[in-house]
Amino acid sequence: MIELMENAGVKNVRALYEKIAGELKQGDEILLDFSRVARLDLSLIQLVVAAARYARERGKTIRLRAVSDRIREQLDICGVKT
């Protein structure tokens, strides 16, 4: 499980990328925990979408956990159905 930081955004997107890449190498399922996140920025959502595509192509899964309505709305704005 990867817990996203409260202030998740473009400044720390690189760190999150490394974590996801590492998890994807090790396992078939990654759980992204949004419980501490109030809002996302676009860089993070792009990363999540790219990672989900990558995982799906390899028969792996990325699951989202503790997604607030606000985050769900943000994902929807970016064309991501949850």
């Binding site: 690189r14 860089s43 792009q46 990363l47 790219a50 990558y54 704005i77 970016c78 064309g79």
Partner: peptide, 22 residues
């Protein structure tokens, strides 16, 4: 009506995290 064009979004391995694609 809302359409989000994600076609420019590169793959996970080549994505530039600090660029806007949507």
């Amino acid at each position: 009506y809302k359409k989000v064009d994600k076609s420019a979004l590169p793959g996970f391995e080549t994505i530039d995290l600090e660029k806007c694609y949507l």
